[in-house]
Design a protein around this nucleic acid. Structure first.
Length: 947
RNA sequence: GCGGGGGUGGCAGAGUGGUCAAAUGCGCAAGGUUGAGGGCCUUGUCCCUUAGUGGGUACGCGUGUUCAAAUCACGUCCCCCGCACCA
């Protein structure tokens, strides 16, 4: 036996490894295949990973105890760009990255090695593995692997997968707007930006306005649906616009607009430059045929859109206030030679009904905020947001939209009609579109980013309706942990559409039929769990012999020629056939909308129905002592740190005790730090108590057997539902407390068999959470085999007896009160004890007390009871209480059960012993067991009389 | 805005029509216990009142359904997660 608790961990980890107890092979038992998404290995893991991981680990160990043949493998993910980019940043000695490296504890000499992306994998994969091992994960390490082309076997597998998807027509080609660094000629992800995190490309509609000479003024808008409300255009008198030839048309558009069109691969030719001032006063023809005036405006930003806008004063507060300002400013109008009356005649055109804002929403809201001029930018910015929300999501089209767009939109919501209008405008040639960034983005190369349209991008077509149907079918049959995650999946499956599955840079696998592309990281990790079933075998096969045929042979049961050893191929086919499908895959709730849904989709696409996944677990995000864990708060806790400080079992128990379901679990420092000591106590308790006690039976045993069986029953239910926190409470805390109570209640002489059963049950049930300690305790009570391979305890429903538990608790309470009184009165062995109790207790209570007291060696020899006054208002409560407590009320001394509350009253008396009870005792003593007097002193209240 | 999950005592967190002033844990208070440690065991902990007791207010807010609501319905406010090409 290990001397120190810290030695225990290593001892058992080594034994497990030596005896290969977590390296399963197919046999005739039922199997259970669970896994945890392979982590991305660009830094040491923190306790956030640990929670998700531990849910799988605890479940795996539980299922093993339940007699399943359990497979729990683990691999590592390196696909994608973060490692490559981090390596590059290390090479550039970028300060932020250097801090990350030194924070992880690397010296300057170490750091230079990280300039090579492959070194990251080489370094971190073993580090992750050693962290996993140090915390006692029951993983089959033979099957470990990492992703990307540097693992050629896995690479082949991913190529095979994509070949399959391609074959079935689930991979399609299309266009994609991406954020682009024009200097580096690379796409720019969110984390590669100095400025503009979260900004994305946004499609803007280009609306054409026909001038008399047939040329078009082109404005940009996010609200093409309000086109019927256009009253005028605004151009900036000081800007130069460009006239371009595009698609055989002539457009007049700002220079930034031209630039964008060029960047986005539009063919065009610049013809000439047009001064804004020259456009003012001209008229244009609109989509619906009406004619509007071009007006001057100075609020325009040349960088936004096309540098000129159309004005919809009915529903844009900015447009309306600008119009009002201009209408008031005669000098300004004159300056540009405008007809004052004509300008003043411009009125907003009602087009939408906005609940709460009426027909001319812009006017309503300007009045509400009391905006007087267009210079009140703060208010106007706020208004824009508020009005956009209301207008876009709640407004409906008015009668003008009745048959304008080929379909009656009158009364329809803007939200629903917007796309229809957009399509119609494009179709009729009155609108076009381009992309614009939602905000300025500056890349790490200090270049301002642009939108680039990638035209030969590959997509996985999650929008395919038949595929969606299969995904739903799979979901419907799956078990969810917890069940309430299901609704989110349902929504996501419907909502997913084409997913860009290839990248130009990073680590990974090349797209088999178009090798300029790399398969993106979320797409190469959807069915790889199948690879776990064979990874330990396939790695022995020369890479030249691994081809699509082999995978078809293994996974599709196709009887094709394989290049490799047939025995090995058959063995892999057997492994896959045995272990698949995935029984439980667990992950954070943020992965529902991508990875976990892809997991479902891809399985239904590639595998036959009996291999579709059957269980998914989802959990929340780890908090640290009530606070969100984040880099900025500096409370990211590395796994290795806490494991070293508190030992693996304390960490395992603490993290799972933090929470369950979809709630965010909370890591409590106070809990983890108190556990090592509790473990020591548990160890010595088990050693001390096991195998001791009496052989004969006693009635107190029934109580404890009831407690024990109930605990096993409830804990089993919790484990089945991965409600690990509740399980820990029952197994570790409640059962531990009750076992000690049993020893007390049997005066240190518990029944030997029952005690042994209880100790064994507790250890086995606790072992998924604290396996090292439990193995040690198991060994200390003389068990020869591993507790990790023991049998989960059975429970006997017959032995669970609510009434027995209630009665026992009551009796024990009375007994301890008597003791307290005796000790207070400093009497060791009274001749007589008199209990004064409410008369409503009489049904069987007295006999019961007598009997129990005898058994438990009560300090008095004689117990006499006296009925005190009737208790009022008992009946009603009692009648309600009984049915809940027992199924057969006739079986038990009914009223007694209800008296727990009254016993509590007695306990109260004990609480205020010094103040109150002493005086009562005095009364009783003085009166020399004058029962009458005692009754008067405390009518209805139980009292204890000694003599 | 959309989809999902929530709002309960000092905190965390049960409870989904009556047994609810509300499990359990932490915190806090009192007492006990062990001459070892932030250990263990009792008891108390919404407000007022009592010898026992009784009464009041409460489960985001409002309204309703019901003999009865933390629990059901409607409305409303607030918080968290996601809304993608990022692993």
């Amino acid at each position: 036996m290990a001397d120190d608790i810290t030695d225990i961990y290593k001892k058992w980890q080594e034994k497990w490894t030596k005896d290969k107890i977590f390296e399963p092979a197919p046999d005739n038992r039922k199997k259970f295949f669970c896994n945890f998404p392979y982590p991305y290995i660009n830094a040491y893991q923190h306790i956030g990973h640990l929670f998700t991981l531990m849910r799988v680990e605890a479940f795996a160990r539980y299922k093993r105890l339940k007699g399943f043949n359990v497979l729990f493998p683990q691999g590592w993910h390196a696909t994608g760009s973060p490692i490559v980019q981090a390596a590059k940043r290390v090479k550039d000695r970028e300060p932020k990255q250097m801090k990350i490296m030194t924070d992880m504890g690397f010296t300057d000499k170490d750091i230079s090695k990280f300039e090579d992306p492959l070194y990251w994998i080489e370094f971190f994969a073993p580090e992750f593995r050693s962290d996993y091992q140090s915390i006692g994960m029951s993983v089959d390490w033979r099957r470990e692997f990492h992703t990307t082309s540097i693992n050629p076997h896995y690479d082949k597998f991913i190529r095979w997968q994509f070949g399959k998807l391609h074959e079935k027509g689930y991979v399609i080609k299309g266009k994609l707007p991406v954020v682009w660094d024009p200097k580096e000629n690379m796409p720019v992800g969110d984390h590669d930006r100095i400025k503009g995190e979260g900004e994305t490309p946004q499609e803007m509609m280009l609306v054409k306005h026909k001038l008399n000479d047939g040329k078009y003024l082109v404005s940009a808008t996010l609200r093409p649906d309000t086109i019927l409300g256009i009253t005028n255009l605004y151009v900036h008198p000081k800007f130069d616009y460009q006239e371009i030839e595009i698609d055989k048309e002539r457009w007049i558009i700002g220079e930034y607009g031209v630039k964008r069109l060029v960047e986005q691969d539009r063919e065009l030719k610049v013809i000439s430059t047009v001064n804004g001032a020259d456009l003012i006063g001209q008229k244009t023809e609109e989509y619906d045929g009406h004619s509007v005036l071009v007006l001057p405006a100075t609020f325009l930003d040349p960088k936004v859109g096309t540098g000129l806008v159309h004005s919809v004063p009915s529903d844009s507060a900015d447009d309306l206030i600008a119009l009002w300002d201009l209408q008031k400013d005669e000098a300004h109008m004159k300056k540009y030679g405008l007809d004052i009356e004509e300008v003043r005649a411009i009125k907003p055109i009602a087009i939408l009904d906005t609940p709460g804002f009426g027909q001319i929403a812009a006017e309503t809201i300007l009045k509400k905020y009391n905006v007087k001029t267009q210079n009140e930018r703060g208010k106007l910015d706020q208004i824009r947001k508020e009005l956009y929300k209301a207008s876009h999501y709640t407004a409906t089209f008015n009668e003008k939209y009745k048959d304008r767009f080929g379909i009656d939109l009158h009364g329809k919501k803007v939200e629903d009609g917007k796309d229809i209008i957009k399509r119609e405008l494009v179709k009729s040639g009155w609108a076009d579109s381009f992309f614009q960034l939602t905000g300025e983005i500056v890349s790490r190369s200090l270049t301002e980013c642009i939108v680039k349209i990638v035209s030969d991008q590959w997509f996985i077509d999650y929008g395919n309706p038949e595929w969606k149907r299969d995904a739903h079918k799979c979901l419907d049959k799956m078990k969810m942990f917890p069940e309430k995650a299901r609704q989110q999946f349902d929504y996501v499956i419907d909502w997913l559409h084409e997913w860009a599955c290839t990248r130009e840079a990073g680590l990974g696998t090349l797209l088999p039929w178009d090798e300029k592309w790399l398969i993106e990281s979320l797409s190469d990790s959807t069915i790889y769990m199948a690879y776990y079933t064979i990874s330990h075998i396939i790695k022995e096969i020369p890479i030249g012999q691994v081809d699509d045929a082999l995978f078809d042979y293994i996974f599709m049961k196709k009887d094709v020629e394989v290049k490799c050893d047939k025995t090995l191929a058959d063995q892999m086919r057997k492994e896959f056939g045995y272990w698949y499908p995935v029984d439980f895959r667990n992950s954070g709730k943020d992965l529902i909308q991508n990875h976990l849904s892809f997991f479902i989709f891809n399985h239904t696409a590639i595998f036959p129905e009996d291999k579709w996944p059957v269980g998914i677990g989802v959990n929340g995000w780890v908090m640290v002592d009530g606070q969100k864990m984040s880099k900025s708060l500096g409370n990211m806790i590395p796994v290795r740190k806490v494991v070293k400080e508190f030992g693996p079992d304390a960490c395992r128990l603490t993290i799972l005790n933090g929470g369950e379901g979809m709630d965010d679990p909370n890591w409590e420092t106070s809990m983890v730090s108190s556990l090592p000591q509790k473990f020591s106590q548990l160890l010595s308790f088990v050693k001390e108590q096991y195998g001791k006690g009496r052989d004969e039976e006693s009635s107190i045993d029934g109580w404890f057997e009831s407690v024990l069986n109930r605990c096993i029953r409830d804990a089993t239910k919790c484990m089945e539902d991965t409600m690990f926190r509740s399980a820990i409470k029952l197994i570790f805390f409640d059962l531990g407390r009750m076992t000690k109570q049993y020893i007390n209640r049997s005066d240190g002489m518990p029944n030997k068999d029952i005690m042994e059963k209880a100790i064994e049950a507790q250890l086995v049930m606790l072992s998924p959470f604290a396996p090292h300690i439990c193995e040690e305790a198991w060994e200390s009570i003389g068990k020869k085999s591993y507790i990790s391979l023991a049998k989960w305890p059975e429970y006997d429903e017959q032995k669970i007896d609510d009434s027995a538990e209630a009665v026992q608790d009551l009796v024990q309470t009375v007994r301890s009160d008597i003791r307290a009184v005796l000790s207070l009165a400093k009497i060791e062995r009274p001749d007589k004890i008199t209990l004064f109790i409410p008369s409503s207790w009489k049904y069987g209570f007295v006999e019961l007390i007598k009997e129990k007291m005898k058994e438990t060696r009560n300090p008095g020899d004689i117990i006499k009871t006296v009925m005190a006054t009737d208790m009022k208002k008992q009946g009603q409560t009692v009648m309600k209480t009984i049915p809940k407590l027992v199924n057969d009320p006739s079986k038990i001394p009914a009223v007694v059960l209800d008296q727990e509350r009254e016993i509590c009253a007695l306990m109260d008396a004990k609480q205020s012993l010094e103040k109150e009870f002493l005086s009562i005792l005095n009364i009783i003593k003085e009166e020399e067991s004058n029962e009458q007097k005692a009754k008067q002193a405390m009518p209805g209240k139980p009292a204890i009389l000694l003599s």
